[in-house]
Design a protein around this nucleic acid. Structure first.
Length: 421
DNA sequence: TCTGGGGTCCTAGGACCC
DNA sequence: TCTGGGGTCCTAGGACCC
């Protein structure tokens, strides 16, 4: 048996933690650049605000209805997520636990007697609510897909905190096929055309035919809906790729502005890469114009670069990235986005030696020392306390975040204040 | 005016080999 | 006129997830 613990309207719930005045009020959290709605409290959902709605389209609706709007504050959400996950880790064996996303975790409960499962989940949920203040929903089922589905039913249909779908499979007939984990827009369109409308319809399909006509992923979904566990928990694995790319606050046309932004993304990626003890062996730089402005010339391009010597040194990667950018930069384009990513990495400890090129050990050690100093300083004194000059200082290209809440839990200066009367 | 970011996995098709 | 067959590996692109 699996349980899926999912935080309710996670980002919106985080914003409410330190703003109890917002309980029972509509709350919306916007994506980067204050672009789209990416989290809504139940009250905001009830107003008809959809996931991904562009802010400028719902702005007046929000104003009329007194919706509280926040720019996204990932520092806060990351920290709260960590607290929620710590409680789950304390309560359940780490080998039977998968932190699936910032607000979800799967538990493999097969070692727990079936009659205790419901109580265990109910108690765990209560503990998270009491200790962190984040409401969660728990779905229970024989497979991960069924646990996901049970979670959906708990949240959207029954509006109860914990639901075990085992023995209640008739629910499948009431669930649209696109609400199944792994069935997205394209697949559900195709399935619908073939008369497969509900989760039940999908579960009835012949797995071999599904494998042939669709793909192995959908076949697995069919099997999982029938209670056959074929996905299982994912082990923790270091990331295979790390990207950083953000839309500009306003469109940019100058190379130097793109270079500054790119440099800051390189720094971000390098930091993450060093955290997981990896080194880059293939990188990518890409640029995009604004696809919503068809009146302007459209352009997008990307360049990949393989490194002879894998590295995690921000200085080396910044200079390579800038060279790559120069190759694909075109004059006269209004750029909306530039991005940097590491596509292939090697483990720092098990690095392949190169037959033809020798590594200068002195330089390598020096580089390691400098990188760990940078990481140390930034960890202690805050992000970007030290950075390359290439990132620039005024950063006028940076994204909008005009409605951001304080870093309540991660910055001494932004701690919530409590006044005694 | 304004439209997110960061991932994973699979598949088809091309290049190459014998 | 007519031009094999079977395999591997790599890559780009698509679909999906939160």
């Amino acid at each position: 048996m699996y349980a899926l613990i999912d935080c309710n309207n996670f980002y919106a719930s985080c914003e409410r933690l330190f703003r109890p005045d917002l309980i029972n009020k509509p709350v919306v959290v916007l994506s980067n650049n204050d672009g789209c709605a990416i989290a809504r409290s139940n009250e905001a959902k009830a107003l008809g605000i959809k996931m991904g709605d562009p802010y400028f389209q719902i702005k007046s609706l929000c104003k009329r209805n007194g919706v509280h709007i926040f720019s996204s504050n990932y520092t806060l959400y990351g920290d709260i997520s960590h607290r929620v996950m710590s409680i789950i880790e304390e309560s359940w064996n780490e080998d039977a636990l998968e932190i699936y996303s910032i607000d979800e975790a799967f538990l493999d409960l097969k070692t727990l007697p079936e009659e205790q499962i419901n109580t265990f989940c109910t108690n765990l949920r209560a503990k998270i609510l009491k200790d962190v203040g984040i409401p969660t929903s728990v779905g229970i089922g024989k497979t991960k897909t069924l646990a996901k589905l049970a979670n959906h039913i708990a949240k959207k249909c029954l509006k109860i905190p914990v639901f075990d779908i085992t023995g209640h499979e008739y629910w499948l007939k009431h669930i649209e096929v696109n609400d199944i984990w792994g069935v997205g827009r394209q697949l559900s369109k195709r399935l619908n055309r073939q008369g497969v409308k509900t989760a039940y319809d999908l579960a009835q399909l012949n797995t071999h035919i599904v494998r042939k006509q669709y793909n192995v992923l959908l076949m697995r979904s069919v099997m999982e809906l029938n209670g056959c566990d074929c996905i299982g928990l994912d082990d923790y694995a270091p990331k295979q790729s790390i990207m950083s790319a953000k839309s500009f606050g306003s469109m940019q046309t100058e190379l130097w502005a793109l270079e500054q932004a790119l440099s800051s993304y390189v720094a971000r990626v390098c930091e993450k890469m060093r955290q997981q003890n990896s080194k880059a062996s293939c990188i990518q730089v890409f640029v995009l114009s604004n696809r919503f402005r068809q009146d302007l010339p459209q352009y997008s391009n990307a360049v990949n670069y393989k490194l002879v010597h894998p590295t995690d040194d921000v200085r080396a990667l910044t200079s390579i990235a800038k060279r790559c950018l120069k190759k694909i930069f075109r004059e006269g384009i209004h750029y909306k986005k530039v991005g940097f990513g590491v596509l292939e990495m090697v483990d720092k400890a098990h690095q392949q030696l190169d037959l033809l090129h020798t590594v200068n050990e002195d330089l390598l050690q020096k580089s390691n020392k400098i990188m760990s100093m940078i990481d140390g300083i930034n960890k202690r004194f805050g992000k970007r306390s030290v950075h390359l000059l290439a990132e620039g200082f005024n950063r006028h290209w940076k994204l909008r975040a005009e409605l951001q809440s304080p870093a309540y839990t991660t910055e001494w200066l932004e701690l919530p204040m409590v006044y005694a009367r």
